[in-house]
């Protein structure tokens, strides 16, 4: 029994190692990339389309609409980052129905890596959108006294993102593993179904929060009133 798939190391050479987290991530990447490539290889431009193309279009346009609903007026600019976040997390959660699979998101290293990506992406998009000076000036609003608090807020919410996702995904796997030893019938199945739901919800929450942070950074002047307490489900 191990708490994180990081602890399941397949190969190690010095600091380099191949653990379950990285291996399953590669697997997911392979599924997503190859699946997308296979489907988009024969995209139809006319009114007659395959079901898989319909599925991809629904997913992509759905994500696009969600990003727009958060307040980002040009969703296609943020679609690759935010869409990939959601697709990776959702696929990682959905694959928990495969026996022997360990979701890479059950590793704090993965969630921390994703949270760090968000931490870097938020100021990056903010600077790209409104310029370096204007973005840095947003840390001094409403007054310069707020500067340390704003900086702390940036890091604390990144930590919250990482820990929230990790906790949910890890606990799901852990609960199923523990229940299997106690009541091996029926109940673990229900908890697995619940875990699927929780995983999709967490993927949605993570992506939406990242979108909200980016929206706050890119439209700081309009949204600074709403930035006070960070939303925490």
């Amino acid at each position: 029994m191990h708490l994180s798939p990081d602890q399941l190391v397949f190969w190690q050479h010095g600091p380099l190692k191949l653990n379950a987290t990285i291996a399953f991530t590669w697997g997911l990447m392979l599924i997503l990339a190859v699946g997308s490539k296979l489907i988009t290889r024969t995209l139809s431009l006319g009114p007659e389309r395959s079901r898989w193309q319909d599925l991809l279009e629904i997913i992509v346009t759905g994500i696009e609409q969600q990003i727009e609903a958060v307040g980002l007026s040009r969703p296609r600019k943020y679609l690759p980052f935010l869409g990939t976040l959601f697709l990776f997390l959702a696929t990682a959660a959905l694959c928990t129905i495969i026996p022997g699979y360990e979701p890479p998101t059950a590793s704090l290293s993965t969630t921390a890596a994703l949270a760090l990506c968000v931490l870097v992406a938020v100021p990056l998009f903010g600077i790209l959108e409104q310029g370096l000076g204007s973005y840095l000036a947003s840390y001094l609003k409403p007054t310069f006294i707020m500067l340390p608090f704003n900086i702390i807020s940036e890091f604390s919410r990144t930590l919250a993102l990482a820990v929230r996702l990790f906790g949910n995904m890890m606990s799901g796997s852990m609960i199923v593993a523990i229940l299997l030893t106690i009541t091996p019938f029926i109940f673990p199945l229900v908890m697995t179904l619940l875990g699927l739901l929780t995983g999709i919800v967490q993927a949605y929450i993570f992506s939406i929060l990242a979108a909200v942070y980016i929206a706050a950074a890119t439209r700081a002047s309009e949204l600074e009133q709403e930035r006070g307490p960070a939303p925490a489900p």
Binding site: D6, T84, F88, P104, S107, S109, T110, A112, A113, L114
Partner: peptide
């Protein structure tokens, strides 16, 4: 595991 963190960020 910071190596894993870096690897996952790169993977992402």
């Amino acid at each position: 595991d910071w190596f894993t963190v870096g690897a996952q960020a790169l993977n992402f």
